[in-house]
């Protein structure tokens, strides 16, 4: 069927199609222009762009800013911090969200509509609403000495990870519940006939079918958690535990900021999200089909 569709669609080149390509090339270059411009700026010394403006021909092109940014902002350390927060957070978010979605859409536990509302609505709340009480709460939750310098949840990777999980679970429940609702009923019925318990229905039957959606959500969540700075800003106080987003601030002075150096740092910081997207692009789109494939 796929091949048939393909052949029917690949018609000989028409002027309309050329027009479409022309339009798309123009627009996508326009879309990329600001990015290219900032990469271009990061290759030029600040004194030069300061004198000539950003939109000008270069006298000198250098990668020096990338070297400086890598060293001055201590990027490797902060990449690791972010990794320590985001990877467990994404795994835990997807696990909890998929199970809750499963309970809502497949098991239909009593009160599942209320559950869906609670989780989805929770994700619509503005972050800033939660900040102050959350800070107070984190200072009240004790942790043993080996898990936290502050002896509380405040200023720990765990704390930042947990709020990411709590906050993002809502969105994932919403998407996954929609997705699972559209899975054919028969598959669970067959599993139930086989005497599968709830866990097996979830882990062995439902979850494998949700793989594309999980991949898509993982990509989105990675971009969101990676770029977040507010949670860490409020819930951390040790400079060497902060995530990568704040490492960029190390390139700013109390007053003076070399913006071209900052641009180089920003490009380096943006790389992982760009790479993750490109690697997962295919699965990402397939996964976001949100309850439908044409197979």
């Amino acid at each position: 069927m796929t091949a048939a569709v393909e052949s029917r669609r690949r018609r000989p080149v028409r002027p309309l199609r050329l027009l479409l390509h022309g339009f798309l090339i123009l627009v996508s270059l326009g879309w990329l222009a600001p990015l290219l411009l900032s990469v271009y700026a990061s290759l030029r010394p600040y004194s030069e762009t300061a004198a000539k403006g950003y939109f000008s021909l270069p006298d000198r092109i250098t990668l020096q800013y990338y070297v400086d940014a890598w060293q001055q902002a201590e990027l490797p350390k902060y990449y690791l911090n972010t990794l320590l927060i985001t990877v467990p957070a994404i795994v835990l978010t997807l696990f909890l969200a998929s199970f809750v979605a499963f309970a809502i859409s497949r098991v239909r536990v009593p009160g599942s509509m209320a559950l869906l509302i609670l989780f989805t609505a929770g994700n619509l709340l503005p972050q800033q609403v939660l900040i102050t009480p959350l800070y107070a709460l984190y200072n009240l939750i004790p942790l043993p000495w080996w898990a936290s310098d502050s002896l509380t949840l405040y200023d720990t990777y765990l704390g930042v990870m947990l709020i990411h999980v709590a906050f993002q679970t809502g969105f994932c429940v919403f998407v996954l519940a929609n997705y699972m609702r559209a899975l054919p009923e028969e598959i669970s019925e067959a599993a139930i006939m086989d005497g599968a318990g709830v866990w097996r229905q979830y882990w062995q039957v439902t979850l494998p079918l949700c793989k594309p959606a999980l991949a898509a959500l993982a990509t989105l969540q990675f971009a969101w958690m990676y770029n977040d700075f507010l949670w860490a800003l409020v819930l951390m106080s040790s400079g060497d535990k902060l995530p990568i987003t704040s490492a960029l601030n190390n390139l700013r002075g109390q007053f003076f900021t070399d913006y071209n150096l900052l641009a180089a740092g920003a490009v380096l910081v943006a790389l992982p999200t760009v790479i993750v997207f490109n690697l997962l692009q295919k699965q990402f789109i397939a996964g976001l089909t949100l309850g439908s494939t044409k197979g």
């Binding site: 798309l24 996508s28 270059l29 879309w31 990329l32 600001p34 990015l35 411009l37 900032s38 700026a41 950003y54 971009a223 990676y226 770029n227 700075f229 987003t245 960029l248 601030n249 913006y259 900052l262 641009a263 740092g265 920003a266 490009v267 910081v269 943006a270 999200t273 760009v274 997207f277 490109n278 692009q281 789109i285």
Partner: peptide, 23 residues
């Protein structure tokens, strides 16, 4: 084309702020 349109989504605060200034 997809990548071109999607790139801005994955950018962080610092990049967007800088780009705004740039443009």
């Amino acid at each position: 084309y997809q990548s071109a349109f999607y790139f801005p989504v994955v950018l962080s605060l610092a990049v967007v702020g800088f780009i705004a200034q740039l443009v």
